[in-house]
């Protein structure tokens, strides 16, 4: 019997391994450094750089305005979280209305279709202005008259139209056999939705809903047009007083710190969801 000793990788093989494994990484790191360095030098050596730096990247201005912008940003995030919850619920109701069949439910179905068509067709900014300024101006007793409240309602109404369509696509993607099975077991329309259709549909649309949440995270800044003192508004106030735009950069940084991880998380969930589907369909 011939026993073979595990042979040491020859230096040739090791060399190939180095070339195949590490070289591409090293090349990409180097090229990134070189290119960014070139851009940086071009910017810094530009004639206008000192002015740009003073206007936009004034560290002391950023530090000075930061607490206020941060407080404003807290309001942005609060509105964001409350909106997400409201949108998730209201859009689900709209999608359920829209899925109804049968003469009895026709009014709800038509309401939902008209609502979705209208609100997807209008710029969100227009709705925010209309609700945020318009409704408080009516001074109807008993109704809240804060701009934040009505601006938030406008955002929820607009985004719900999109989210309802997302839910609907998820419900339509459920195989007809599941509905047939539910009906043959005697489940009513509502029971079929509750037990058979919605749990599967919602699970399938979580990635799309998360992407809507990422978009919403930026759009809550629309409230600033109402004079609501959110991050953007606070930054604008500072800019108006000092003619320095660094405060807007401070707000921008805060938004990025929040949105980038959120977007990455949405990507991650989307990828997991795709893997799950691949496994099921095999």
């Amino acid at each position: 019997m011939i026993s073979q000793k595990p042979s040491q990788p020859s230096s040739g093989r090791r060399n190939r391994k180095f070339r195949e494994k590490y070289l591409p990484t090293i090349i990409s790191i180097l090229s990134v450094i070189v290119i960014f360095w070139a851009i940086r030098s071009a910017v810094i050596n530009a004639e206008q750089w000192p002015r740009i730096k003073a206007q936009f990247f004034d560290i002391s201005a950023i530090i000075e305005v930061f607490p206020k912008v941060l407080r404003g940003f807290g309001l942005n995030m609060l509105v964001w979280v409350i909106s997400i919850a409201s949108i998730a619920l209201w859009a689900l109701v709209l999608a359920i209305f829209r899925s109804f069949s049968g003469a009895w439910f026709a009014p709800l179905k038509i309401f939902s279709i008209v609502y979705i068509d209208l609100l997807r067709g209008l710029p969100t900014l227009l709705l925010v202005l209309l609700f945020g300024f318009g409704i408080p101006a009516l001074r109807i007793p008993g109704l809240p008259h804060h701009s934040v409240f009505w601006g938030g309602i406008a955002i929820v109404m607009a985004y719900s139209a999109y989210a309802a369509e997302v839910y609907r696509s998820g419900m339509e993607a459920i195989h007809d056999g599941q509905r047939a099975a539910a009906k043959s077991l005697g489940l009513s329309q509502m029971q079929a939705l509750r037990f058979a259709i919605l749990p599967q549909a919602i699970r399938n649309v979580v990635p799309s809903l998360l992407n809507l949440a990422v978009a919403l995270q930026k759009d809550v800044a629309l409230l600033s047009v109402l004079g609501v003192r959110d991050a953007v508004r606070e930054a604008q106030i500072y800019t108006a007083r000092t003619f320095n735009y660094s405060s807007l950069i401070a707000a921008a940084l805060l938004f990025l710190v929040a949105t980038i991880p959120m977007a990455r998380f949405a990507d991650y969930v989307t990828r997991k969801d795709q893997e799950r589907r691949l496994q099921i369909t095999r």
Partner: peptide, 16 residues
């Protein structure tokens, strides 16, 4: 629905 049951070619079990 209680007295008549049906079984389909594609099973149609609730996947979740």
């Amino acid at each position: 629905y209680k007295r008549i049951g049906i079984v389909f070619q594609s099973y149609n079990l609730f996947a979740h």
